[in-house]
Structure formats: C-alpha cells, structure tokens
Design a protein around this nucleic acid. Structure first.
Lengths: 129, 129
DNA sequence: GCGGTTACGCAAACCGCTTGCAAATTCCAG
DNA sequence: CTGGAATTTGCAAGCGGTTTGCGTAACCGC
C-alpha cells in the first residue's frame, strides 16, 4: 500500500516523554532533531495536523500567537508561566453546576471551555522565594 | 502642539455602541467606514494599539487567530459563539477561593485568568429551538 | 523488481499583524 | 494671517508563523 509515517510515530513518542506538556511546532522539530531525525518544518506541521485530525492530539492557541500541541487526554486547563513560558496543565476548576448556572443566567449554551491562567509555574514560583 | 487623533475618538464611540462586544480590526475598519471615515487599516491598528496602551481597551486573541478589541471594564469572561462567531461577555465564574485552592494544590502562582467558553450565544441558542 | 500509494522536502504563498517613511493635517506662536 | 512644530494618516513593504503545491523518494503488496 504505502509508506509508513515515521514522523508521526516519533512525534507521539516524543510528546509522551513529557519534557514539555505542550509543544510548539518549533519544539517538536527541535525534539525530533535531537532524537535523530531532522524533519522539515512542513513535515512536522503536517504530522501534527494529522494527529489533531485523528484525535490523538489537540491544538491550542495562546496569546503569544503560537500554536501548541498536546496529546489528547482527560480534560484539564492550563497555566502559562510568564517566566519560563511553559504551558503547564492544571486540573479543571469549573464544575458542571457552575456552567449550568451560567447558562441559566445568560441564556447561552455551553459546549466546552478553555481556561488559561497566567502566572508562575511551580518551579518558577519556587525559585522566586 | 499637534493634531487631534480623530480616529481613536471615533473608534471609542463606535465600540461603545455595542453592536459587537469585541471587535476585530476588520470590524472596526468596517464600522468606521460605515460611520463616514474610511481609515486605512494601519491607522485602525495603531489607534487600537494606543487604546490598549492607555488602558481604554483590551486585546484578546482567539483560537481563530484573530485579535479582538473590547473596551476595558470590569473583569468578565467570554463565550465564543460557534454559529455567529460573536464573542459575548459572560460573568466570571472563578471565585478567588477556587484559584487559591488551585494554587495550593499545584504550587503555581496565579495572577490572572482568561476563560473562553464555546457554544451558542443567547440569540443563536434561541433560534435553534 | 514493478506499480501503486503515500510521506517527505523544498520553496513559495498566505494571513493577519507591524513598521518605516513621506505627505497631510492641525495647532500654536508670532 | 502665516510659519513652523508636532502628530496622525496613508501607503507600501516587511515579518512571524503557518499552510500549500508540487516533484521526488520511500514503502507496500504483488
């Protein structure tokens, strides 16, 4: 039939290693290069795109204008560290009751949400004291 | 001394009219054109930038990659309507206690947050029934 | 090996935002 | 009224990050 998509596989493995939680395309390319393969940027892009399409990964856009990719999993939210620029996962703080209340109050219909906290991640926060 | 910045003034007035809550640069340009002035895109951009700089307005980045500007005011969050693409303000649902609990639990230091709900705004939601 | 199918690399296009520069406008002092 | 300084505005080019078109090369089953 066809070729085996080496990059996607390597990419999943890389992302699973959790040096980062969320990876920019640049991060991914750098990580893959370090791992031996030095794929073209568009290849990385396409692989990431595919992972998103088949539900393996999720794409996030931050206020800095750069996309980040994370492996899909249970819902959580994020903290964007203003110091080290890492995007750290944090548990979701919005209870179902809260969004229902909000729906009742405002008349909107909520299907999902996405919270981004800004502040210091655990290590940067510790380093400051 | 200097010229009077006609555009910024017109822009504030336009935004206060609340046809939208949050305006893309394109929206702003279109709105201003409709109002008589047909400013250049960079002029709109610069005016918006200035309003943000002096605290009159706030800039938001959505997952669609386009910036939106809203008049600054009390803190609130947003719902991005998947049908009409409007960005609607909703009251904030995160209590101080919740973020403190999150800080305690994860060791991060939170300075602010930004929630974007996805779903249907009030009018689109009503129209669906 | 052979043909079909698919991933890859390269370079160019794209999108929305930004910026440099010169022309236009306004304000104030004389 | 007029000259000049201060600023905004328009134009066009530039930019960062992402996306695409296309030709080549790798893999698969036969």
């Amino acid at each position: 039939m066809a070729r085996k998509p080496l990059i996607s596989a390597a990419m999943i493995e890389l992302m699973a290693r959790r040096e980062h939680h969320a990876w920019t395309l640049e991060d991914l390319q750098a990580g893959l290069s370090a791992a031996g393969t030095s794929p073209n940027f568009s290849t990385v892009f396409r692989a990431a795109e595919k992972l998103v399409a088949d539900g393996t990964a999720r794409k996030l856009l931050l206020d800095d204008g750069r996309a980040r990719f994370e492996l899909a999993g249970t819902h959580h939210d994020h903290l964007h560290c203003v110091e080290c620029d890492e995007l750290v996962p944090v548990p979701c703080v919005i209870a179902g009751a809260q969004s229902s209340a909000l729906e009742a109050e405002t008349g909107v219909a909520i299907s999902e949400h996405h919270i981004v906290f800004s502040g210091l991640c655990q290590s940067c926060s510790g380093r400051r004291e």
